[in-house]
């Protein structure tokens, strides 16, 4: 991380791809809004806006997990739809890199609704669909479908309203920690640094519960590529290493153990954002189950 920063400073021609997009975005586009649902009891960031979802995936390799029912095929669990649930490290990473801002969704929307009502703005929820399912844009046909939109489509030009309900990253993390008693400040920082390490190596990182780890790493978009590795965080137990190694090899992956080099055993309950956003150096091992004989 330190090294790559030095490179950027010394040699502008060798900017890495991700840094370029980051820089250009800073200047041209507004940050992506990351709506926080249930801030006080169970803070979750869910993306409802399709354009934001595309940007996150195409430009930043942020995958999240689709959790909504696909309304065309509502009786299956294979293809799911909006909303996209981001996991906590993705959220922190987006905020650290100034790509996204956190928003207290419920209060923001309530206030926005009051404003809309006072202006008499109301969006229509009936549309006209052709037989093949495509939307008929011509105004001649009468509407035949009633729909629920993913998100509010009335543009908001009121930046003050956004600023008013923006959530400080510290508040989000505090809410997360107070609702996750298993996590403490030091562990949180360590885990985030480990996530960032893989993210900056340009891996696509997904939650790893399905394969018995904390992360699953993909070389690129998992739509096209199989994953190579299962990552286990905070693993110091020899049993875990053997179990993880066997399991990962069983699903044609290798097992990765990662540790923060500078981490001490001190347990801190609180988090300083400065410390969270510092660079760190990692030691990483990958393990494969070897069958002799």
């Amino acid at each position: 991380m330190n090294n790559s920063n030095d490179n950027i400073a010394s040699d502008d021609n060798e900017l890495s791809e991700i840094d370029v997009s980051r820089l250009s975005l800073h200047q041209t586009k507004l940050p992506i809004i990351l709506p926080v649902i249930n801030l006080h009891r169970d803070p979750q960031v869910l993306i409802f806006d399709l354009e934001n979802l595309k940007t996150l995936r195409n430009e930043y390799g942020i995958l999240g997990v689709l959790i909504g029912t696909l309304s065309q095929y509502p009786q299956q669990n294979f293809f799911l739809s909006i909303p996209l649930r981001l996991f906590v490290w993705e959220v922190i990473w987006l905020v650290e890199n100034n790509i996204g801002v956190l928003l207290d969704q419920v209060n923001y929307r309530k206030e926005k609704l009051l404003l809309q009502n006072s202006k008499g703005l109301k969006s229509s929820n009936t549309i006209s669909l052709n037989k093949d399912g495509s939307v008929n844009d011509t105004s001649s046909t009468s509407p035949n479908f009633i729909i629920t939109k993913n998100t509010d489509e009335i543009e908001n030009n009121d930046q003050d309203l956004l600023h008013k309900h923006q959530i400080n990253i510290q508040d989000y993390i505090n809410a997360y920690l107070s609702n996750n008693p298993q996590m403490n400040g030091s562990k949180f920082i360590r885990n985030y640094h480990n996530y960032k390490y893989f993210k900056e190596l340009k891996y696509f990182v997904s939650p790893g519960l399905k394969f018995g780890g904390d992360f699953v790493l993909y070389p690129s978009d998992p739509l096209r590529f199989h994953s190579h590795s299962v990552v286990k965080l905070n693993s110091i137990n020899l049993n875990d290493i053997v179990v993880g190694g066997r399991l990962s090899t069983g699903v044609k992956k290798n097992f990765v153990v990662i540790e923060d080099k500078d981490s001490d055993d001190k347990v801190d309950d609180d988090i300083s954002i400065d410390k969270l956003f510092t660079s760190s150096s990692q030691t990483v091992f990958s393990i494969e189950w070897a069958g002799f004989g």
Binding site: D42, Q44, P83, R109, K122
Partner: peptide
């Protein structure tokens, strides 16, 4: 009319009903 985003933020605001 309530869109999905607003509905999620209205529906999940306590411990009994979580995502």
């Amino acid at each position: 009319p309530v869109d999905l985003e607003l509905l999620y933020s209205l529906a999940f605001i306590n411990e009994r009903y979580t995502i």
